[in-house]
Amino acid sequence: MYYFNSSIKTTINIILISFVLAYTLNPIRSIFEAKFKLSKRAASILVILMIIGMCITCIISIMPTLFTEISNVSNIFDNIESFLEGIYEKFNLAHIPGANTLYNEILEKGNLILANFSENAINNLIKISSNLITFAIVPIMMYYFLCDGDRIYNKVLLLLPTEKRTIVKKILNDIDKILTRYIASQLLLCGFIGVLTFILLIIFRVKFPLWISILNAIFNIIPYFGPIFGAVPAVVVALLDSPIKALWIVLGMFIIQQIEGNILCPKITGDSTDIHPFVIIILLLIGDKLGGFVGMILVVPIAVMLKVLYDDINYYLF
């Protein structure tokens, strides 16, 4: 029913997105509540207003420039074409069998990518704009999850038999501890990646350094594939200036990911998931098929929850 009825799918998506955002922002609300001596409702409103303000600032500051850059995206392929033509002439590749054919095929593919990119970018922007009204409900749902989450939790527990409630509470508390640790470690890791990316982009004077850094930090939530996805916007924008700058950005992003994978990740994340990398890759592929980008973000936390659930059921019941 979820996949065949668009209304039900939209409703469930809004509830899930609101719950996930509220759960993620719950520690920040608790900090505001304790530090500023606010009520739970006032702290919740403050957190939501802060998020809305950040989104509005992002839209106002980046959207006009984004439309301009989309219209000028052909400059990227002009720069690439000039770069390839320079290499082709400098190394006299015309004498190599098949080089001329390969060169022409690359240019042909580039023009095709340009046409598809422009069409898809405009269609996606229109689609996002048409869904803004629907997702305006998300802040309202977040408010109720942040304010009345404990009440909803207790009401749901009342649906269970009395003898099962204690065990369920223990299992849910264990899930909450592991999940909170995972989310906190991921947010801290993404923050480090965002800062390092921002420094790299500032050094090479790439446009939109702040927003590309934020985007790369968000993509970094996805294990293994996230760093690749996150590097693409930086490389594409660098190509607006020159292919050489893009190559430097590729090298810089590679170094950042080595720092993240070999230094930061073991220190910050540790074994918070305790899931084999092969299993995580399979889960990411499943998440991509079921929910796209959002599915890839949510599939690992869901797997962590299921693992804790399995371990606790074995411990408490068997």
Rank of each mutant, 00 (worst) to 15 (best):
G295I: 04
P277T: 03
A94Y: 07
I249H: 08
L21Y: 13
I275E: 11
Y143E: 07
L210D: 03
S118V: 14
F208Y: 15
T24H: 08
N111H: 10
I282V: 02
I313H: 15
K37V: 06
S130T: 06
I171H: 11
N173A: 09
I313S: 15
A234Y: 01
A42R: 14
G252P: 01
D274S: 12
Y2W: 07
E89S: 02
M305H: 09
D241T: 06
P97F: 03
L46P: 13
S61R: 07
S118L: 11
T65I: 06
A115G: 05
L38R: 07
I62H: 00
D174S: 08
S71W: 06
F293K: 07
G53I: 04
L210W: 05
G86R: 05
I60Q: 03
V138N: 11
I126F: 12
A231F: 09
W211H: 07
I280D: 01
L102C: 11
I133P: 09
I56P: 05
Q186V: 05
L16A: 14
D148T: 00
L251H: 00
V156E: 11
H95A: 07
Q258F: 02
S118K: 15
N5D: 05
S18V: 00
F278A: 12
N104W: 04
D274I: 11
I31V: 03
T11M: 07
L114A: 13
I45G: 09
A303T: 04
E108T: 12
L46M: 15
T68L: 06
D288Q: 14
I15K: 02
E260I: 08
I113R: 09
E260P: 14
R41Y: 11
I76Y: 04
K90R: 12
I222N: 05
D312Y: 09
V237I: 15
N116Q: 15
E33T: 06
A246T: 08
L93Y: 09
V250E: 00
L146W: 12
F254V: 01
N154Y: 14
F4D: 09
M141E: 02
V304D: 12
L16I: 13
I302V: 12
G291Y: 03
D312L: 06
F91P: 08
S213E: 03
E81Y: 13
I202T: 14
A217H: 03
L21D: 05
K37R: 07
G295E: 05
V294F: 15
V236W: 11
R181C: 10
S30W: 07
K245F: 04
P277R: 01
P27S: 07
L188M: 02
V237S: 11
I28L: 13
P233T: 05
A115W: 04
G194C: 00
G295V: 03
L188F: 10
S130A: 02
N72F: 12
L125E: 01
P277S: 02
R205K: 15
I113F: 09
Y310W: 12
Y315E: 04
A184L: 14
N173Q: 10
T162N: 10
D274M: 12
K35F: 11
T166R: 11
D148Y: 00
N26V: 06
I244R: 15
L112W: 03
T134A: 15
K207W: 10
L189K: 03
I263F: 13
Y103F: 13
G98M: 08
F32D: 10
G295L: 11
L201K: 05
A184M: 14
L285H: 08
C190H: 01
K245M: 02
F19C: 01
